[in-house]
């Protein structure tokens, strides 16, 4: 479904992602790991068009998307959460998730006028949004302002917002970072369920939490893929161990 070939991202003279290949099928949980600064988030940013792709191709269901604008990415069925929960602080949790449905709804000014078609669409959207909140265990704070939620809840909200549009591919950037112990369980179930219906690409440092969820792990270091395979194999791969524990000069 997703086919990335030779993707490279450069910032000035610095190469953040170097000739990276990645293939993702329609379903399953896949992980992208690597030391800090390896280029994982940069790759996700490139995939969602927040930064330019210097070289290579990104194809979603055969369609080249390395040139589209950021707000078009969701139309190709790709949704994401952020490393630092980028919630809409002034909106309620429910409203936050509703924005996740923006691309799949159409109400504009007719909503402000209270027209019947707008109402119907709004009701349906709210149902979906509430269910998404229930998925991550946040239904009880649906009406709370996002900026007042504890950081862990904000991260969960970010995930709910990504999932609500039922995307083909959901990108989760360190979803477990900042989440408290009580919520980890709910989130793991949520991710597992999501992996049955769509493709989930997860960046995560808390490897113990998710290694058993993933069906395949891709390891990045200095922007290059250094290993790819089932979790058990990756854990034993000497190149991987070296990159995490070995001497490194400088980058963070």
């Amino acid at each position: 479904m997703l086919a990335c070939r030779g993707v490279s991202v450069r910032f000035g003279g610095l190469v953040s992602v170097d000739d990276f290949d990645l293939d993702l099928p329609k379903r399953g949980i896949f992980m992208l790991v690597g030391p800090n600064g390896a280029g994982k988030t940069t790759f996700i940013n490139a995939l969602t068009r927040l930064c330019p792709v210097a070289a290579g191709s990104i194809k979603m269901d055969g369609v080249e998307i390395s040139n589209v604008s950021p707000d078009q990415v969701v139309e190709y069925g790709i949704a994401r959460s952020f490393q630092k929960a980028e919630v809409f602080g002034g909106l309620s949790a429910l409203d936050n998730v509703l924005v996740g449905l923006h691309a799949q709804t159409r109400t504009g000014l007719d909503g402000a006028l209270g027209l019947p078609t707008a109402r119907r669409e709004e009701f349906a959207a709210r149902e979906r949004a509430l269910r998404a909140l229930e998925e991550v265990g946040l239904a009880h704070v649906a009406r709370s302002r996002a900026s007042r939620l504890p950081y862990g809840y904000q991260k969960l909200l970010d995930v709910a917002r990504a999932l609500v549009s039922e995307p083909k591919l959901v990108l989760l950037d360190e979803p477990f970072a900042g989440v408290s112990e009580g919520e980890v369980h709910t989130l793991r179930d949520c991710v597992r369920r999501a992996g049955r219906e769509r493709a989930v690409l997860m960046i995560e440092h808390h490897l113990e939490l998710v290694m058993d969820l993933a069906v395949r792990v891709t390891v990045l270091d200095f922007g290059r893929k250094i290993a790819e395979g089932p979790p058990a194999a990756i854990r034993r791969d000497p190149a991987v161990i070296r990159s995490y524990l070995g001497t490194r000069s400088g980058t963070s």
Binding site: D71, F82, F88, H102, A103, G108, G111
Partner: peptide
């Protein structure tokens, strides 16, 4: 309380996340 108003607030609070949602 509808889609357009939420889009306005989304752009206000986080343009990056808003565009990721398709706004």
């Amino acid at each position: 309380r509808t889609r357009l108003g939420r889009a306005f607030a989304a752009v206000r609070d986080s343009e990056i996340a808003a565009s990721a949602m398709g706004v």
